[in-house]
Design a protein around this nucleic acid. Structure first.
Ligand SMILES: [Mn+2]
Ligand SMILES: [Mn+2]
Ligand SMILES: [Zn+2]
Ligand SMILES: [Zn+2]
Lengths: 153, 153
DNA sequence: TTTGTAAATAGGAGTAGCTACTATATAGTA
DNA sequence: TACTATATAGTAGCTACTCCTATTTACAAA
């Protein structure tokens, strides 16, 4: 029995692909077979792949594709809203010596991490289904965006 | 005027250092001058430094210290609860092709990212002070822990 | 249909941020 | 003071990008 990693029917995948192509054109991007293959590879899984993982997957239908193309394309997809980067991932590990309850905002441009504290966010309740299935070690409300310093430029 | 990156008085820093030393002993860790210097460098800033940033800082008072020691020590501090790793940071960039509102749980061991959806988490309200100061591009409730697959081992 | 061109890709080199390895040094102890 | 498990310095190796350049291609214009 083979592991099933797809998440939708071919009909739905094709429909999404059509809308993706329209989105590319709306954003002035060329519709290349590589781009389509990467989009289809990403949208048809819930594994939150890295570029490397997706590269392996797409190579099966597009053997010559380069890792750089996969990386660049995934960032392009994120820019036009056809994909997104999972929160926090992709940067150097950052440490915190403050043990008080607090939350973080991270600037996607300069990578600055700013503390804030909103008491309501200390008390978020993890759904029972999740708490039963996983051992929760940390729960956080996490914001990303452009910081004040980067904005005034 | 020099940029001030310290966050507390020397008295408070010394008090925290004493408690840190006690915590090391309680965990059977040797109290080395490197460890103390790294702890003090981390706890006395709110910049959420990377190992590299902290290495530069600690070198000023401890010129010979190696980057590897800083890295290892920071992970050790996290293990005994004297520090923490900022949520999500430190791993390869991960992508998501699912545009429906949902939340993520990440296993700190196998790095698996699992979707879940709790409607209440879609509606979290960013404090006005933060929303005014920064341009918020994404807000998320983010969980970390040990997943079901890793736990049964 | 053919042609021109800006955009995209392949392949490879370069870089950042760890991570593993090994010889040396040292904190804690007996 | 001597012992030894632990920690560190220095370095090599590795992963995940990121940059560079020559070549190709999508698509618009003729
Ligand atoms: Mn913080
Ligand atoms: Mn997801
Ligand atoms: Zn910024
Ligand atoms: Zn796991």
């Amino acid at each position: 029995m083979k592991k099933n990693t797809t998440t939708m029917s071919n009909i739905e995948l094709d429909r999404k692909t059509e809308r993706f192509i329209a989105r590319c054109r709306a954003n002035g991007l060329k519709v290349t077979p590589q781009r389509i293959a990467i989009y289809r590879g990403l949208v048809d899984t819930d594994e939150h792949p890295s570029a490397e993982m997706l590269h392996e997957k797409v190579k099966k239908v597009f053997p010559g594709i380069s890792l750089d193309t996969v990386n660049r394309t995934l960032l392009t997809l994120s820019e036009i809203g056809a994909a997104s980067v999972v929160e926090g991932s992709g940067d150097a590990r950052r440490f915190d010596g403050d043990s008080e309850k607090h939350q973080h905002f991270k600037c996607v441009q300069c990578k600055r991490i700013v503390d804030f504290h909103h008491k309501a966010f200390d008390r978020i309740k993890v759904p029972v289904g999740i708490a039963r299935r996983f051992t929760i070690l940390s729960k956080s409300v996490y914001l990303e965006g452009i910081c004040d310093l980067c904005r005034r430029r």
